[in-house]
Design a protein around this nucleic acid. Structure first.
Length: 844
DNA sequence: ATCTGTGGCCACCAGC
DNA sequence: GCTGGTGGCCAC
């Protein structure tokens, strides 16, 4: 067994060189042997080629280093040389000489006492950049090319791009400002590369536990009792350790192979052998549990480190021969959750995510895992691996493709991209460009020094003023057209040249170029880097990828690629403004965020004014959108052309509503589209923490309202709503509603003991659960009902039907419906046909 | 344990 | 009972 393993590893470790970056999939640094490993994926052979960068030294770059610190460095054994290099200093608009330190240890700066005085650490491989450059500029436009590795040689594979796709890119380039052309072209060449299918296996293990407690992965005291594999080449396998429990009955599908093991050690060897057969390993929480456990358990059983294909980092588990992707971290990522999966899941557990995305749940058994019959355990374990795999494969491998594209845009290894948040993607992208242009990376203090006064926020506790929200004109409006500015903030950053080095720049004569409503000015002499990057990505998304993703002339595969690229760009563009105002972002610079929002407010106010002049009624608007009442086609065109011409930003038709109902509340409305579908925005009835009982009642009324086509049909709708509400009331009063439909589901944003200022209801319920021995972590969703017995709330599993506080639910229902009915001019109590709610409640 | 931003609504808490 | 503050969820 071990012989085969070593042979395989040796094969995998074969040196390859001169590989193009489109195949570069990951890079890791092995702390033990002090070598960097670049990993290249070959889609043809479905293997990963490892390229050991053991040249022995890495360059690092510091500047403005205090003399003493430099001396300190010189005396260190791992410093083998110093060179002087010229770099661009963007903030001061000059070039400066910096000292480049060449060290034998790539991590030489770690832990050094002078670390704080280091201005600029080039921690990424400069080689990386060269590869990308070659790739970017050696391609021609009409014929795309991607690379494959055959017999350790790189073979370019050419393929034809449809003429209209090429034309579309040409047009995008022509329409764009000259500053952006080179970047747009470069991005298109990178992002049009086909996406390889990632050959992968999903793994899930089960560990023996006395009670259903989560075993400690570092201690690894209990045996691994099961492991399952599901892969992209149809491997369906379960390993089971024979134990003294019932066998049970095999109800697994026929294609699932079950293998029994007598010895745990033997089983773990077999697990490792499976793992190294695949370039990509997929787990759900493998960083924190499965791989960590396997590693420590293997050591405990007497494996040598070299026999374990896993290496552990801080909060990360790597597989030596390939790439490990932990889906838990991917789905935890807020950007992915919101923009890629439009908030379809809220619960971050495997069960929560899979139920929402692929409609498959974890299996439930009455018995604890320890005594579960072996075949049932196999079934349980297999199901988890299957779900994990499906999360990567559903929708034509959407998730894998998305990660690949994000990795390409962020200039990051795919596994890193899968583990970090959007601010790190953008950091990596910015640093890459800075290095490529041989510029210094600005220091945090330098940016802070320059910040100056920013505008005051509306909300207490925020750092600067944000978007403008128009007070809606209350009531029902028929034929409402919604216009919105396409990618408003990225467009502003592009058009107004906003960047950390251009806002409040050092040139005297730029100080007259003021941003409205602020004290900031913008550089007139140079194009800012942020403006350049964000601007070119914006142009590509708006003019090229978004239209292509909908083009019926393209094949499904091509459209999928363009759609994924468009989605990924959306994520990055949306966040690129936000990170400028986020302290954790290394290029954090409030004036950019402040100026962006200020110009946004200026633009929307100007447009509203223009609408007034043109006699168009604006009934509502929020940040980048305007709701116009019954405008003519001509008026729409006129205002849109005006915006394009005067503001330099496209104002597009977003949608039109048959009618929109506004209460007097901002960010709260209901709009019915021509096809009868309904947009509900901000109303309490749609919020995720509301009990099903209230949500059902609410959506039923919404549905009724969606059938209304003209003003005189509202009367009928009203009667219907009235009838339905009365029925639901009776059911509530008679305690016919199941407890779980009455449960509020609220998330704890921090551990329960961290709530000190107040004790919210869900925390109160959580503490009741904890006193019963249940563990509650940050991010858990607490289900509780409102009761008449103190303290007024109870976790749903501890409550009884007759404890329910009916009047509290009534209040909530009233609150929810008031928002809806306000807009229509109904009274909630009037709907019930009683002068007062309580009258109705007690009399029927 | 994790991290793009502000504006806004709602229910509830805690102190007066 | 009133009121400012807190926390959660949503719009953009």
């Amino acid at each position: 067994m071990n012989g085969a393993y070593y042979e395989r590893m040796k094969e995998l470790l074969k040196h390859t060189s001169d590989l193009p970056p489109s195949l570069l999939i990951s890079a890791t640094y092995d702390g033990d042997s002090k070598v960097a490993v670049l990993k290249f994926y070959n889609p043809t052979s479905k293997t990963i080629h490892l390229w050991y960068d053991n040249t022995g030294h890495k360059p690092y770059c510091y500047s403005k280093l205090p003399k003493e610190a430099l001396e300190d460095f010189k005396n260190r054994a791992d410093i083998i040389g110093l060179e002087i290099e010229e770099k661009i200093d963007l903030l001061n608009d000059t070039k400066i000489k910096v000292t480049k330190i060449i060290a034998t240890d790539p991590l030489a700066i770690g832990g050094s006492p002078s670390e704080k005085s280091i201005r600029n650490v080039i921690e990424a491989w400069e080689a990386d950049i060269k590869y990308y450059e070659n790739f970017l500029y050696d391609n021609n436009l009409l014929v795309g090319a991607y690379y494959e590795i055959r017999d350790s040689k790189i073979i370019p594979v050419e393929y034809e791009i449809p003429k209209f796709v090429h034309e579309s890119l040409k047009k995008t380039l022509e329409e764009s400002h000259p500053d952006f052309k080179e970047h747009i072209l470069g991005w298109a060449k990178l992002l049009n590369q086909p996406l390889p299918t990632l050959h992968r296996v999903a793994l899930d293990i089960e560990v023996f536990t006395e009670e259903n407690r989560i075993p400690d992965a570092t201690e690894a005291q209990q045996p691994v009792v099961a492991a399952s594999f599901v892969s992209s080449d149809e491997l369906h396998e379960v390993f089971i350790l024979k134990r003294d429990v019932k066998l049970g009955e095999n109800t697994l599908p026929k294609n699932v192979r079950i293998i029994f093991f007598d010895e745990e050690k033997e089983m773990i060897s077999a697990i490792f052998e499976r793992i190294i057969n695949y370039p990509f390993l997929i787990t759900f929480n493998g960083d924190d549990f499965d791989l960590k456990y396997l590693y420590h358990r293997a050591l405990k059983l007497g494996f040598k480190k070299e026999q374990i294909p896993i290496s552990l980092g801080k909060d990360v588990a790597y597989v030596r021969h390939g790439v490990h992707l932990d889906l838990y971290k991917v789905f935890m990522n807020k950007s992915i959750q919101v923009y890629a999966f439009s908030n379809k899941y809220v619960d971050h557990t495997l069960n929560g995510v899979s139920e929402a995305l692929i409609g498959q749940k974890k299996l439930e058994f009455e018995e604890p895992l320890a005594t579960l019959p072996l075949y049932d355990l196999a079934k349980y374990c297999y199901n988890d691996a299957q779900i994990t795999y499906k999360l990567t494969s559903f929708n034509d491998d959407l998730l894998m493709k998305l990660l690949l594209v994000i990795a390409r845009i962020a200039r990051m290894p795919i596994d890193d991209a899968a583990r970090v948040g959007v601010s790190n993607w953008i950091r990596s992208l910015f640093y890459f460009e800075l290095r490529r242009m041989n510029a210094l990376i600005p220091r945090k203090e330098e940016l802070e020094e320059r910040t100056g006064k920013v505008s005051e926020s509306i909300t207490k506790g925020k750092k600067y003023k944000g978007g403008l929200v128009v007070v809606p004109k209350a009531g029902v409006h028929f034929n409402v057209v919604v216009l919105d500015f396409a990618s408003l903030y990225p467009s502003i950053i592009k058009v107004h040249n906003l960047s950390f080095e251009t806002v409040r720049c050092i040139h005297e004569d730029c100080k007259s170029n003021l941003v409205p409503d602020t004290e900031h000015w913008v550089c007139k002499k140079r194009r800012g880097l942020a403006s350049l990057i964000i601007g070119s990505l914006r142009d590509l998304r708006v003019k090229y990828y978004k239209p292509l993703s909908k083009n019926p002339l393209l094949t499904i595969e091509d459209r999928t690629l363009y759609n994924v690229v468009s989605q990924a760009l959306k994520v990055i563009l949306n966040a690129s403004y936000g990170v400028m105002g986020a302290e954790i972002f290394p290029l954090y610079y409030l004036p950019v965020a402040d100026a962006t929002a200020a110009i946004g407010r200026y633009i929307i106010s100007k447009t509203i004014k223009k609408c007034d002049e043109l006699g168009i009624e604006v009934v509502y608007g929020d940040t980048d959108s305007l709701f116009l009442k019954n405008p003519t086609q001509n008026q729409i065109e006129e205002i849109s052309n005006w915006a394009d011409r005067e503001l330099g930003i496209e104002l597009d038709l977003d949608k039109s509503y048959r009618y929109v109902a506004f209460s007097q509340r901002k960010k709260n409305y209901l709009g019915v589209l021509p096809d009868g579908s309904v947009d509900v925005k901000g109303l309490t009835g749609k919020k995720s923490h509301i009990p099903t009982f209230i949500k059902d009642a609410f959506y039923n009324s919404v549905n009724t309202l969606s059938k209304v086509k003209s003003p005189d049909e509202f009367e009928k709708a009203r009667e219907e709503i009235k009838r339905d509400l009365r029925q639901r009331f009776l059911a509530l009063k008679n305690k016919e509603i199941p407890l779980k439909d009455l449960a509020f589901n609220v998330m704890t944003s921090k551990p329960p003991d961290k709530y000190v200022k107040t004790t919210p209801q869900h925390v109160r319920a959580a503490r009741l659960l904890m006193s019963r021995g249940k563990e509650v972590k940050a991010g858990d969703i607490i289900s509780f009902v409102k009761t008449t017995t103190p303290p007024g709330v109870k976790p749903v599993e501890l409550a009884k039907v007759d404890e329910i506080d009916v009047s509290k639910y009534l209040d909530y229902l009233r609150g929810t419906f008031e928002q809806l009915l306000d807009a229509l001019g109904y009274e909630f109590d009037e709907i019930l046909g009683a002068t007062k709610l309580e009258d109705f409640f007690w009399s029927s």
